[in-house]
Amino acid sequence: MDSILALKAEIIRAIEQTCAMVSISVSAAVIVGMPIGILLFLTAPGHLRSNRLLYGVLSYIVNLVRSFPFLILLVALIPFSRMIVGTAIGPLAASVSLSVAAIPFYARLVEQSLREVPKGVIEAAVASGAPMKHIIGGVLLSEARPGLVSGLTVTIISFISYSAAAGTVGGGGIGDLAIRYGYQRFDTEVMVACIVILVVIVQLVQWIGSFAASRLDKRK
């Protein structure tokens, strides 16, 4: 207990760092990944803006980034992180790699959720003469709302755990703290405390995510 109290400030800082890394990467996933997911959906063969070349290229890039083991991606992106944020260590630098990983991750989940929207519903909107921006906003995103939120929940939770991995190469955060104290210094108490914190955060995120998704789902 003593060691935890002694490290109180450091634990709080670690929580802040984890939150920062996850917020930045998940924001990137939503801001960049969501449009890519929509584009993937629209350009897929047989869909509204079917474009074999664009779909092929996008899909290939998404697969490519997703097939990298995260740690390797992290190392490979060190020069890129340095270019963007001026440093290769710390939560901000880790956020760059995390964002690069989170964007295609969420893009695929968005594409999948949009595929769940019944074709007939989209067709009814096309038949009514609705322009593309209304079909995207008023039909696709609206009908896929529960799936988009569930996908976001999955993304947040995955990237809490990815951020722990990022922490070990100088990113900071709770995962990093757990490894530094628990694994390297055999301070089990601190490690357990860190794990408990992670478990609580993940449970909380999942609970809020599930609740939001079910509230948004009017299909019954």
Partner: peptide, 16 residues
Amino acid sequence: RRSIGMIFQHYNLLSN
């Protein structure tokens, strides 16, 4: 198309 309405067997309403 705005002056051509259409209805379907399975209604195709926005469920949300």
